[in-house]
Design a protein around this nucleic acid. Sequence first.
DNA 1: GCAAAAATGTAGAACGCTACACGTAGAACA
DNA 2: TGTTCTACGTGTAGCGTTCTACATTTTTGC
Lengths: 337, 337
Amino acid sequence: MTKKSPARTPRITIREVASDAGVSVAAVSKVLRDAYGVSDALRAKVQASMDKLNYRPLASARGLRGRTYTLGLVFPDLRNPFFADIFVGVNAALERTQYQAMQGVSVSASSLVEAMIDRQMDGLVLIGPNETNERLNDIADRIPLVAIGHHDLKEARFDTVNNDDQLGARLAVRHLCQNGHKKVAMLSLAAPVSTVINQRELGYRLEMTEQGLGAAINIVRAPQVLRDVQLTVRRLLESRDRPDAIFCWTDLMAFEAISVATELELSIPQDIAIVGYDNTVFCEFAQNRLTSIDQSGEVLGLQATRLLIERIDGRSQSEHFVVTPRVVARASSAKVG
Amino acid sequence: MTKKSPARTPRITIREVASDAGVSVAAVSKVLRDAYGVSDALRAKVQASMDKLNYRPLASARGLRGRTYTLGLVFPDLRNPFFADIFVGVNAALERTQYQAMQGVSVSASSLVEAMIDRQMDGLVLIGPNETNERLNDIADRIPLVAIGHHDLKEARFDTVNNDDQLGARLAVRHLCQNGHKKVAMLSLAAPVSTVINQRELGYRLEMTEQGLGAAINIVRAPQVLRDVQLTVRRLLESRDRPDAIFCWTDLMAFEAISVATELELSIPQDIAIVGYDNTVFCEFAQNRLTSIDQSGEVLGLQATRLLIERIDGRSQSEHFVVTPRVVARASSAKVG
DNA sequence: GCAAAAATGTAGAACGCTACACGTAGAACA
DNA sequence: TGTTCTACGTGTAGCGTTCTACATTTTTGC
């Protein structure tokens, strides 16, 4: 089955570095790990040899005894450009460390997480995980874990990084109300993909009530499939008592809402105002001009990575970092009347 | 520096499986690798033990002797949803294999590739690599390699998967001409990110000439930065002899072009027609309605993965797979006049 | 100046797996 | 009957690191 592959030049090993520098293998390892008990002279000598031979430690071998200096990022999907922001933050945090991030994508994180554990990741960042608290705790028992976008914190044995989704939703509703929109509907997701949705729906409900619009509360849930979202929005916009604003749980959905509204020749924001969530780069485009809630993905990624490395280094008490979201107002929700 | 981490339950090893099944470690390894010389009875016994103990082989340990069953994907950027299509194809190809894909993102693949080699990836798929043929050959000498979106094939020691970018560009121009647009400009990238650009520019030139529009050839190059693209497009659209169509090298750029045109209150396609490349999901939206060239990312990903696994299994002669692109016409390039 | 403590370096046993080299038993062949 | 194959299992030496335990040297304290 497996034929012989063409011979490849063998790698430089720690042994060769040691012999080149005239020291022991253990000494080189110490330098590598920045461990205790290394004189400046030794370090310099070893560094010189490593540079000269262009030595790079092999992660698998390191992993067998210690760590691999690899972090796993688990994304729920690659389509949403918001995740790119998170990634930028992760990379910023990794700068000047030995760590490297590897991403995986999966709808149900389960099997991917196992695969990452098999591959000796030193720690995991789960983004918007569709998992119960219990399941996450199980994972955390096996590998240092940080979750971005998970709000169920009872006895969490892992760290979390979130924006305040409840507040974000409230800000969206408040902003719409301030601009004269009353019948604010919310476009949400049918399958509760994560606890994030619950928080946003809750925030929406609370703020609507607080604004005295309790009677207008209207949460419409669409499946994640493109076609179905459009159908759902169309039904909403063609309904007898059409809302005058939609708060969409994600920019991506908001763009679809804009699309349907455009097709129905409704004008935005006069006939229907729209607010999204994530403040993706696409919001800026003139054809969208989408008001959105910014949760600074970059900060989320940066903090999550920071916490993860701390955890790998031994911290066992959980920490929970929260970012305050803010409204970025654009034309799609401008004042009317 | 490194504190003691909380004790984690130790992993099940191949030794425990062997002892549970009452066979040798070597036998278990054979079953694991589907190697020659295993009776059905033995296999069944071992499988049962593995299932019972919930055994999972450790990739690092495997990597030290054989392969890790991990493939590395190198993306140039995460923002472009086109890459998500490629990823879908990759995963389809990996179904029912032991392999798992890990992604990394980097503008200059260099250091990421090194990191992936350090981490014992069995092979690499480089997507739209900004690298010379020579450099890619160097990498291919060290690890099985497939490039998606690389056209410089002289003596390539790796496989490539491409759509016919030259043809794609020709189709775009031809389509625009057929719909009555004459002064077709091309919006390209300032820094030649990959050989893909050259091919598309070449196709544009050739087809323009063939259509008798050689005099109207106009390639405008913008840096990859958002703000600069908008500036470049604005300058183009406000110029004395404004083109009546723009062929954009990427959907993402096309959306920006639409944005600027909208701001300038030009109507699409009457004042300016626009065609993109990649046929991203966003093209479908009513606010974009973007005509685009489809290069079926899913097929690209699938084929690349297939080729890579073949190569890991020992093939050393290069193969080059080409997908034929097609025009997906939408309103942004409709017939005028 | 001498003991104790601190600093610096080394040897060598793992880590979990693969793959080579072999051993054995039964089948096929002459 | 003996001989050669083939199929199936096993023993074990690494793969390239880390890390504990220990040996040696230097510094410190008095």
